[in-house]
């Protein structure tokens, strides 16, 4: 330090540079300010769904209801429907009668409070060529009168796999299979890495690329904490077989909407259920069986 003058100047410049750098950083990060305002400590520290006690879950429900009112202007009732003992759900779809009207996709869109702008739905219907089972020949965007000659229709939604690739890959156990066979997502635990989207062979998962937009009047107030409550931005969601309905004994929305009765839903453990009759008496196949995912969703034909 033979040059105290130069040294001082150097220190001064460093301090100046540091200050400028820090303020530039603060400026660059400014967009986060509004975002963090929304993030309370309670929300930040919220435990995994499976670790929440009874009272804690009530608190979470109260918060979700409050936020829905604040952000969407809709008064909703959120419940925590639990799996029913002795019930494992199965779903079957009759390809011989499906006409591809997409009423099921629309019912899902409305029931599950999907983003209105993107026509989001958990069901994607492929228009397929008669004589081909190659999805590469399919088209999801068909927009002409149905059923079109020479075509058949293949609605695809979450297959609720027993050996679900999405559950395997999730790094934080934010998605899991419930005792009644439904694969659910804890929307408050998902970190949004989208590994499950990459893993799913059925295009069953959706990511909230932005905050979903639903007009207050269109919000379905009958909600489940693991199912159709309005999802936060930045997390993954999926079909839950409408567990907020089906765990209360009701039929899923897509089934009720089907004008051809192509859909059959019920309890796989009940040998007298409709779904069991279909599985035992119809020609059944599952989608991409060779992948070993063991779906709970079955397709069948009239014979």
């Amino acid at each position: 330090m033979s040059e105290p003058e130069g040294g001082k100047r150097r220190v001064f410049l460093k301090v100046l540079g540091g200050t400028l750098g820090a303020s530039a950083f603060a400026y660059a990060m400014a967009p986060l300010r509004a975002w963090t305002k929304d993030l309370s400590a309670e929300k930040f520290l919220q435990k995994h769904y499976k670790e929440l006690g009874k009272e804690e879950i009530q608190k979470v429900i109260a918060r979700v209801e409050r936020e829905t009112l604040e952000k969407y202007g809709a008064k909703v009732k959120v419940k925590d429907q639990k799996p029913i003992e002795g019930v494992e759900f199965g779903y079957a779809l009759n390809l011989s009668v499906c006409i591809g009207c997409r009423k099921c996709a629309e019912a899902c869109h409305v029931e599950n409070n999907h983003d209105r702008k993107t026509n989001n739905s958990y069901i994607r219907v492929l228009e397929m060529d008669q004589g081909s089972f190659d999805m590469a020949r399919g088209d999801a965007q068909y927009d002409h009168a149905v059923p079109a000659p020479g075509k058949y229709y293949l609605p695809i939604q979450c297959q609720q796999c027993d050996n679900a690739p999405c559950v395997k890959v999730c790094p934080v156990q934010a998605t899991w299979k419930e005792p009644d066979g439904i694969v659910v997502v804890d929307y408050d635990w998902c970190i949004g890495c989208r590994y499950c989207e990459a893993a799913c062979p059925y295009h069953a998962r959706r990511f909230n690329w932005t905050k979903p937009e639903v007009p207050a009047a269109a919000v379905n107030p009958d909600q489940g904490i693991l199912s159709n409550r309005i999802r936060p931005q930045g997390v993954v969601e999926k079909c839950t077989f409408c567990l907020h309905r089906t765990r209360e004994g009701r039929l899923p929305a897509c089934l009720e909407a089907c004008p051809t009765g192509a859909r059959v839903f019920g309890n796989l453990l009940d040998p007298k259920s409709e779904i069991r009759w279909v599985l035992e008496n119809k020609r059944i196949y599952v989608l991409k069986e060779e992948l070993g995912t063991k779906p709970r969703f079955f397709y069948f034909f009239d014979v």
Binding site: R102, A105, N119, Q141, D143, H144, V146
Partner: peptide
């Protein structure tokens, strides 16, 4: 024949 609803967007 009917017109399908909710085309993917």
């Amino acid at each position: 024949p009917t017109n399908p609803v909710l085309r993917p967007a």
